[in-house]
Design a protein around this nucleic acid. Structure first.
Length: 111
DNA sequence: GGTGTGACAATGG
DNA sequence: GCCATTGCCACAC
């Protein structure tokens, strides 16, 4: 009775589990779900995050390069940056500084 | 029910 | 080493 919901629900659940001040990558989430090759679906799920009734800290999810790829989807291009900086993450040129240090892998915490 | 899409990732030239 | 292309699979129309 667990995986009755769509794949998106699983993505949302992981994103909501991301600790404050931490970030993760689409590939890390995708791989945790077993999609490890199709990280695109994770990012695509983020695009429909607005359809979900629950708040999703999508700003904590970035691409493998640590770049704020979907910042434009937050309404304002600076919104994502503001949220990350609000959590103690430094963002320069739409890229997370010391990205690997703030990287949070679900497999290492949910294993 | 088939086609298109999509905030990525990896490989090739 | 940078730019272009392919792969990948679930969801929307």
């Amino acid at each position: 009775m667990e995986n009755k919901h769509g794949f998106f629900e699983q993505v949302y659940d992981i994103v909501k589990l991301i600790p404050r001040g931490k970030v993760t990558t689409y590939g890390a989430i995708a791989r945790y779900l077993g999609l490890h090759g199709s990280a695109r679906m994770v990012g695509w799920a983020m695009n429909k995050v607005s359809l979900d009734k629950t708040y999703i800290p999508a700003h904590r999810v970035v691409n493998r390069n640590g770049l704020l790829t979907g910042k434009h989807y937050f309404g304002s291009e600076n919104t994502m940056k503001q949220l990350l900086e609000s959590e103690g993450i430094k963002v320069i040129d739409d890229k997370i500084v010391d990205f690997e240090n703030h990287l949070w892998i679900p497999e290492e915490h949910l294993s």
